[in-house]
Computed example of a mutant assay.
Amino acid sequence: MKASRIIRRRFFHELWRGLAIIWPVLSGLLVLMALIGLLVAKVEGWPLSDGLYFSFVTGLTVGYGDLVPKAGLSRVLAMSIGLCGIVLTGLVVAIAVEALRAALSSEDRG
């Protein structure tokens, strides 16, 4: 029981360390997604809040379908939001996997 608590503590330590290193990239992607979402809202005539909502629902690949872009430019922008979301998710998962690897390998050492 104590060993799992130590591994968990090491995992979260490594996770936060990794996120701190990659934070400029993650925040840049989040800002880019938000800006593109605002642009989609402007092109489609949606409220800005709907543009932000659409951006993050699309970026997280949830895609509820309640907001659907009709204009060609908006559709291209939606694809770029999706690609940014895939990169964002991949980076977070990579950091988590590396944190788990580091936590488990430190257990083997000590």
Rank of each mutant, 00 (worst) to 15 (best):
M1E: 14
K2Y: 11
K2I: 09
A3V: 14
A3G: 09
A3S: 14
S4I: 15
I6A: 15
R8A: 15
R9T: 11
R10E: 14
R10P: 02
R10W: 10
H13I: 14
E14T: 10
E14I: 08
L15C: 13
W16E: 15
R17E: 09
R17Q: 07
G18C: 04
L19M: 15
A20T: 08
A20K: 08
I21S: 03
I21Q: 07
I22S: 05
W23F: 14
P24E: 06
P24I: 02
P24C: 07
V25M: 13
S27C: 11
S27N: 10
L30H: 04
V31E: 02
V31G: 03
A34F: 03
L35S: 12
I36G: 00
I36W: 00
G37V: 00
G37S: 06
L38N: 00
L38T: 03
V40H: 03
V40I: 15
A41L: 06
A41V: 06
A41H: 07
K42M: 09
K42E: 08
V43K: 08
E44S: 05
E44N: 02
G45F: 13
P47K: 11
L48M: 13
S49L: 15
D50L: 11
D50A: 12
D50R: 09
G51H: 00
L52H: 04
L52T: 01
L52Y: 04
Y53Q: 08
Y53N: 09
F54Y: 06
F54P: 00
F56Q: 07
V57I: 14
V57A: 12
T58F: 01
L60Q: 01
L60R: 06
L60H: 09
G63R: 10
Y64N: 11
Y64A: 10
G65M: 05
G65F: 04
G65Y: 03
L67V: 03
P69Y: 00
K70P: 01
A71H: 13
G72F: 12
G72S: 10
G72L: 12
G72R: 09
L73V: 12
S74Y: 03
V76Q: 07
A78W: 01
M79P: 00
M79W: 11
M79F: 11
S80C: 07
I81V: 06
I81M: 01
G82H: 11
G85S: 04
I86G: 05
T89K: 00
T89N: 04
G90A: 06
G90F: 05
L91R: 04
V92F: 04
V92D: 02
V92G: 01
V93Y: 14
I95F: 03
I95R: 02
A96H: 03
V97F: 12
E98A: 13
A99C: 09
L100F: 09
R101A: 12
A102Q: 12
A103E: 02
L104N: 09
L104F: 10
S105F: 11
E107H: 15
D108R: 15
D108V: 14
G110A: 07
G110V: 06
